[in-house]
Nucleic acid binder design. Sequence first.
DNA 1: GTCTATACTCTGATAGAC
DNA 2: GTCTATCAGAGTATAGAC
Lengths: 183, 183
Amino acid sequence: MPYRAKTSASAILDEARGQLERDGADRLSVRAVAASLGLAPNALYRYYADRDALLAAVADEGARLLLAALEDAARGRDGTDAVRAVAGAYLDFARMRPALYGAVVAKHAFAEGFHPAHADLWTFAVDLLRGVTGEATAAEAAVAVWGLLHGIAGLERAGLFDERKPGGGVDFGLQALLDGLAP
Amino acid sequence: MPYRAKTSASAILDEARGQLERDGADRLSVRAVAASLGLAPNALYRYYADRDALLAAVADEGARLLLAALEDAARGRDGTDAVRAVAGAYLDFARMRPALYGAVVAKHAFAEGFHPAHADLWTFAVDLLRGVTGEATAAEAAVAVWGLLHGIAGLERAGLFDERKPGGGVDFGLQALLDGLAP
DNA sequence: GTCTATACTCTGATAGAC
DNA sequence: GTCTATCAGAGTATAGAC
């Protein structure tokens, strides 16, 4: 074996995630990742088919990290308390790791192929809302709550609240939605 | 005047919007737009400083089109009826013109510089919700409703609902939120 | 003042040698 | 599994034709 492995899929993934979080998803470059690892410009193609595959792997890793943060927030709570705590953790994640969050919820993040971590996120959300609405409408409620959080995060990132920030707009909306969802 | 103008800012904008809606924002190329207009690869730089400026112009145009669609939907209605009609029009716009919608709500769409069309969208949303909640909490309610719609649109685009579609998840969430907002 | 020609750098990607 | 070499395409800067 004239050429021994100098890297690994996980080392590449770590470096790619770092660059994505630092510079944004748009500027994630296969070549830059390779250079940071001391490799030839195309060495990564042994591990990931193309740039999109690398991005998808970063997104899956991000979904795992997000789920872990949400589970932490929910531990020891239930009902609307749990939802409120999870909502805070969700928005914190979106605020503190915007590029990684963007990759998690990017176009086709859920649909394309099989993404176990994304499926786990969805299962977690439905389980969480089951404690508020009961079994019958848990899925619909999960869509609503997740939608509200995702939307708030997106509008925040787009800068809608920069100057005309309505104090506590997030809590207000979540409270109203939980009121409306109460059985 | 030895050289008559072969193009104009609005012709460039139209062609750019067409290519963005056809191929997606990622693949909007200054060179391709120039080629479609029969110009040299870099002729557009007389009209737009760089690719980002062109993209911002397309986003502003998109915000104008979205606002027009929402105003159409609201005409002749008020209260929760108006909100429901506008919500339908909003999601239709996001579904039928996904790339343009994405440009309207993209990162820094609202914050960076002065975007009159985006400000008009925000004003419209607050006016709309004032008819439901009254003056005191109209802004917070607008954040909540817009957030819900934006989030649902984003999760739809990401493919969350592709196979486990909860029937009428959107209507369910909007209804719950309106219930919670009712004074 | 408007467009063309040219060139530079960076990107993703492929082919084939070792 | 990694390398070198190479390609096509992108954004963009500059110089100059008219």
